[in-house]
């Protein structure tokens, strides 16, 4: 039974696309058939973050409007063979996405894959609504920062009221993914702590992704971080998050970089 997962946040720039790529790749790395779908029509970036930008021929809009078959638009990842990407259109208007067309595409994807991961655009408008409409589960990406937490609260409200499941009176599983977290700043009282965010948003925690240089390095290279450096702290956090998505119960911790003596000395001399 395929699962449709939306990665959403309300606020822009908190790590939706990075997390979509990393969670999708991590699931595929464990052997699952995964497709990541970019719903950010007009501002597509999932293809770029995943290193597939030069292989885009057809996109989601082409499939929605019947100008291309789904198989023609899907791009198979070159590194993980069970991972595919369905890019958004860069030139078309977001109004080209019709609810009926999206429903048909999601239905077709459900038949082909174990996981359909929808990367939502920022905001609470049509694009974001369509991205979440068919979801069985949602990952709410939040930074430990006031505006991000507020917007996440709003998105959680929408997940509970405007999705297909909500309208049928069914529940949608919501998970909090706390990104760009700095445990030392949180300990010093300079950043909202995980407990604070959890208390305010009151949805279960999927994982804590520590602030890391590896994330920018990965997007520079066009690779999900779980592929570019699988043992780095953010990658380990994403791998654990994926195990929780699959139903495992694990204690949540903030992974830290395993630094050698040389790194430590080097850091000290630079600081």
């Amino acid at each position: 039974m395929a699962k449709v997962l939306v990665v959403t946040s309300g606020k822009g720039g908190v790590g939706k696309t990075t997390s979509t790529a990393a969670l999708g790749a991590a699931l595929a790395q464990t052997g699952k058939n995964v497709v990541v779908v970019d719903f950010d029509v007009g501002l597509r970036n999932l293809d770029l973050v995943m290193g597939a930008e030069r292989r885009v021929v057809f996109d989601l809009i082409n499939v929605v409007q019947g100008d291309a078959k789904l198989a023609q638009a899907l791009i198979r990842d070159k590194r993980v063979e069970t991972l595919s990407i369905l890019p958004a259109s860069q030139t078309r208007d977001k109004d080209a996405l019709t609810p009926e067309g999206v429903a048909r595409v999601i239905e077709e994807l459900r038949e082909k894959f174990d996981w359909v991961i929808c990367d939502s655009p920022a905001g609470i408008e049509r694009g974001a609504q369509l991205a979440m409409y068919h979801a069985d589960q949602a990952v709410v990406v939040t930074n430990p920062e006031v505006s991000s937490v507020r917007d996440s609260d709003r998105i959680i409200g929408m997940l509970d009221s405007t999705t297909e499941r909500a309208k049928k009176g069914e529940k949608i599983d919501k998970h909090l993914l706390l990104t760009r977290y700095d445990p030392s700043r949180a300990a010093r009282g300079e950043m909202l702590r995980t407990e604070d965010v959890l208390e305010i948003l009151s949805i279960p925690l999927l994982g804590i992704i520590p602030e890391s240089e590896e994330v920018l390095r990965a997007s520079n290279l066009g690779m999900p971080v779980t592929l570019s450096n699988p043992t780095s702290a953010p990658s380990r956090a994403y791998f654990e998050a994926v195990r929780r998505l699959e139903g495992e119960t694990l204690d949540v911790s903030v992974p830290t970089e395993r630094k050698g003596l040389f790194d430590w000395l080097f850091k000290r001399s630079v600081a």
Binding site: V146, R150, M191, L192, D196, I200
Partner: peptide, 14 residues
């Protein structure tokens, strides 16, 4: 410290 202020402001606002 600023984090407790952020938490309190959010709780009231939300």
């Amino acid at each position: 410290t600023s984090a407790p202020i952020a938490r309190d402001r959010l709780q009231i606002l939300l």
